[in-house]
Amino acid sequence: MTPLNLLEAHGLSCRYGPHQAVNDLNLSLKRGEILGLLGANGAGKSTTMKMLAGVLAPSNGHVTVNGISLAENPKAAKQQLGYLPEQPPLYPELTVVEYLRFCSELREIPRKARPNAVNRAMVECDLQSLSKRLIGNLSKGYQQRCGIAQAILHQPAIVILDEPTVGLDPIQIRGIRRLIRTLGSERGIVLSSHILAEIQTVCHRVVIMRQGRLVYDEPLSVADSKSFDTILVGFARTPNLDELAAIQGIDGITALDDRRLRIAVVSGEDPRAAIANTAVARGWGLNELHAEFRTLEDVFVRLTARDDDALTDQTTGTAA
């Protein structure tokens, strides 16, 4: 019986001395899902991925891989994992093919299947023409691809990629994204990045971390849909707030200044037409009216802005 979630983390914490790098993190990954891990620098993304990959033991909490506990049975669990760390784990003095051959031994791929596995990984990462070159002489982008090849060599059920497109040129980035999407169709992938566009084009679900905590966990469709919670309106003359508040679908009004308001909307309602009608009928001189769509970028900025703690906490409550 295969468990529902490929990867599951419960109450994951990691402490470096007094510094709490990751704090009580819960995460799950389904088969066929590409999960994007977003966060500002130092939010704990890499530490989380290290713990998921079994490179770093968590101070608290546990990880199960395909139903196998990473702490109790690390060997079996790690066989299901492919991991690309932030810095690709390469040996610069070896050639690409020597390196991948060693990785295939490390991953305990049966001897007969090794040449095939190495070739396939090289083809997938577009490295065939460089197989005899020393890794140390390759450009950053190709080294990154060697790192990815190593992570997918043994066709693991879960692939953990820590900033896989760093140092690649735009064409290579598209290639890697295509590869990730292909891989993601039958596996589970955890991907970290601080490039929003990357997460938006590749991932199905987004998780945002801030100061070691998970502050957002939603399918990408929610963040990216045309939903909105607020409307921005501006008038030439000061409006009557009570009259405005009486309109169907309006939850609350915040005055930005005398004539500009941010109106909170009851979810699912769209009072824009009603507001326009009222404004015209009362002669307030409507000169601005637009919904503030919730893009991933807004969510990210709102959740990770450091100097705006009150707002962040409020959002955390609703997102969780």
Binding site: K75, A76, K78, P85, P89, L106, R107
Partner: peptide
């Protein structure tokens, strides 16, 4: 320092 130790740590090796 070069990060390659992670390769061994992430592999199913004790």
């Amino acid at each position: 320092r070069s990060g390659s130790l992670q390769l061994l740590l992430a592999a199913p090796a004790s």
